[in-house]
């Protein structure tokens, strides 16, 4: 049977992709952030997961406002990246895992989640920045990827509790897949930030750390928040906690081991959290 071996939370802000392109990893501004990743890469190298289920939100590359799914799952053999309009270099395509994608879709619909099913989508920085951070120099040929998109762009967005439940259903699907495969979960985005309006620039390090604490020990506490409460506490884009909650739901109900945590703020306009969680079974 397939096994979920761990969950990683990471930011996906474009500025990180630009910093990688420009080789700024060891500058004072970025050093603390990039120092987080080598131990996670070592863990990935040791564990060698076969598949990554990657929770992200599309920021207007593939899923624009004309047809914007609330939840969407990639079922494609390959995912290309493309020009997003402001300067990160597109990266080589990610390889998909159609058999597990379809298994997840079938399991979800049997269990009352009805996502949009995507056989041909491009993925944006929400997916590519995490892949580049975790497998630098485009060295991700050894891992297959299943992108799962959650609408964080236009209200109404799924309630935090619903993103958690959606992730939980995906985790159940992975664990009942009758193939021997090691699966790592990636919850991307966040934490506190607001890009728009007179309130742009708000950060909340205390709340970010609270969220990281509860993500490990008691994610149900985070599921009690409404999206507007998240916006009040951590800015309009704090709603990206959705992907962290989906990842945590998929990880399973027991309290995982928190192998690693880092928090750096600000990077660009964002409080950046990174965690490596190992399920205890």
């Amino acid at each position: 049977m397939a096994k979920v071996i761990g969950g990683i939370t990471t930011s996906h802000i474009p500025a990180i992709g630009v910093a990688i392109d420009k080789g700024l990893e060891d500058t004072p501004y970025y050093r603390d952030l990039f120092a987080t990743y080598p131990p996670i890469r070592e863990w990935l190298n040791e564990e060698k997961p076969d598949i990554a289920v990657l929770f992200y939100n599309d920021h207007g590359l593939e899923m624009w406002l004309d047809k914007k799914p609330t939840f969407a799952i990639g079922c494609a053999p390959q995912y290309e990246n493309a020009d997003e309009g402001w300067g990160i270099k597109p990266i080589p395509p990610l390889t998909g895992e159609t058999e597990l994608s379809w298994h997840i879709v079938n399991h979800l619909i049997e269990n009352d989640f009805d996502p949009t099913v995507c056989q041909d989508i491009k993925v944006d920085h929400g997916a590519t920045v995490p892949m580049t951070l975790l497998w630098p120099n485009h060295n991700y040929q050894g891992i297959k990827v299943i992108p799962v998109a959650i609408n964080c762009e236009r209200h109404p967005m799924p309630k935090p509790s619903r993103s958690y439940a959606f992730g939980k259903a995906i985790g159940d699907a992975i664990r009942c897949w009758d193939q021997d495969a090691k699966v790592v979960l990636l919850g991307t985005g966040g934490l506190s930030h607001q890009l728009d309006g007179p309130r742009a620039g708000i950060l909340n390090a205390e709340f970010d750390n609270y969220c990281m604490d509860k993500l490990v020990s008691d994610p149900q506490e985070l599921c009690k928040f409404s999206n507007v409460e998240l916006i009040e506490k951590g800015g309009a884009q704090m709603v990206e906690l959705a992907m962290w909650l989906a990842m945590r739901g998929a990880l399973g109900e027991g309290v995982p081991e928190e192998r690693l945590r880092n928090y750096v703020s600000p990077i660009s306009n964002t409080g950046v959290g990174v965690q490596l969680l190992i399920p205890q079974d």
């Binding site: 603390d32 728009d196 309006g197 007179p198 309130r199 742009a200 620039g201 708000i202 950060l203 909340n204 390090a205 750390n209 945590r261 880092n262 928090y263 750096v264 703020s265 600000p266 306009n269 409080g271």
Partner: peptide, 22 residues
């Protein structure tokens, strides 16, 4: 958007963040 120069905005971000790195 927030009525600041870029430098002021960066300083505002930093004032809420740096030093809280863990």
């Amino acid at each position: 958007q927030s009525g600041r120069t870029t430098e002021e905005f960066q300083a505002y971000l930093e004032s809420q963040g740096r030093g809280k790195t863990t």
